[in-house]
Design a protein around this nucleic acid. Structure first.
Lengths: 214, 214
DNA sequence: GAATAAAAATGACCGCAGTCATTTTTTGTA
DNA sequence: TACAAAAAATGACTGCGGTCATTTTTATTC
């Protein structure tokens, strides 16, 4: 039968990821060499490359699992009836705390996620998708509650907030924000700005978003 | 006299950057080794590291000059009386075209600029500042024309649009946008969203932004 | 079970970024 | 100009990420 091979492959993959978690956590990302990683996983160095394209892809795979878990936790503790602004600030702050728990990890992760290469683009797309999917219910509810314009494409609304989150992360990595509190304040401020809009009071037609003509 | 040394250092620095421009342009960033770069600059490999911390910093320095030039060009051809939305779309699109002229260059540049390491953070801060300074006059005029809320901190308004620009770039590098036209459309859409706001019509008080109470 | 083909594992090897002990050049001083 | 001290330049060296020809393991066929 042919199931043996598949099973072994899954085991090896798992072994690599387990070794990665251990070594990345104890030695850091840069200081963990592929050779040591292979040793720790009980395989040869070349074998790793039959499971992952690059070192950073291993790291992404590792993050993927962690983030899935993190999102589960967030989902549970998040009150879906709070205003969108507060909900988003909470969620993104939790994400921020997690990602920057180790600054270097976070940088590697973000660089790869936001500006992927051809080798990692598939994985990052997948991660992006999960990220977006996670937010959809919150936005749908907010829209139903009337906190968001009715004519809004949710995907773009989510992207909008996500982009402001990225800016905040960038500011953090550029050393413009030194305390977690600064991060919180900037994030909230930008989110408010996004909701209110940068232009002065809107055109009257927008008072009633659902305006069927024809 | 002590001026000789300084002069030589400036020359060497220039030689490194010149060699970098030539080699990066002809061979690409990754394929240009520090050894070849040193040879081309007529110096030893170790010497380079007395002028730059890392290879990517050389690249940033190279970009810095190029972008200064690009901004000068943009300044000249940009009509300051056009609506802010159109102006911003134009400027960011020009930036986009330049940055992604070579996709790999752009990725290196963006990764380093948006998520810098300690070794490059000073340089990226400087670049950030120039970037922001460049935009200030456009935003000031727009605010005076009444296209932006009067109570707006310009820095955050600029950051807001910049962040949406980054999102668009990220989408490009993730392969979600394949044509320049898609980039343009997404950018314009997000910018409109930012101006209008994601929330439904505002409270009446915002109809007259300058509302002195007391 | 033997023979053959296909898939997987391997580690010697390559090229490169960055380091550092040593050498070379410049500056300050008598 | 001679000499010592400081600054700058250097390239052999290190460790690493990634490759690939070769070996080992697994599946298939008779």
């Amino acid at each position: 039968m042919g199931g043996v091979r598949e099973k072994k492959k899954r085991q090896t993959r798992k072994a690599i990821l387990d070794a990665a978690i251990t070594l990345f956590a104890s030695k850091g990302y840069e200081k963990t060499s592929m050779e040591k990683l292979a040793k720790a996983a009980g395989i040869g160095k070349g074998t790793i490359y039959r499971y992952f394209h690059t070192k950073s892809e291993i790291f992404l795979a590792f993050c993927e699992e962690e983030l899935d878990f993190l999102r589960q936790e967030i989902s549970q503790k998040t009150d879906t009836h709070k205003p969108l602004l507060e909900t988003l600030v909470d969620i993104f702050m939790t994400n921020f705390q997690y990602i920057t728990r180790n600054n270097d990890f976070g940088r590697v992760y973000l660089r790869e996620l936001v500006f992927p290469t051809k080798l990692t683009v598939d994985r990052t797309k997948e991660m992006d998708n999960r990220f977006i999917m996670f937010f959809i219910p919150f936005f749908e509810k907010a829209q139903k509650r009337g906190e968001l314009r009715q004519d809004l494409e949710l995907l773009f609304a989510i992207g909008h907030f996500y982009s402001l989150y990225l800016l905040t992360l960038s500011a953090w990595y550029s050393g413009k924000l030194l305390e977690e509190e600064d991060v919180l304040m900037l994030l909230r401020m930008l989110f408010k700005q996004a909701l209110t809009g940068l232009a002065p009071g809107p055109s009257p037609s927008q008072q009633l978003p659902i305006a069927n003509e024809h």
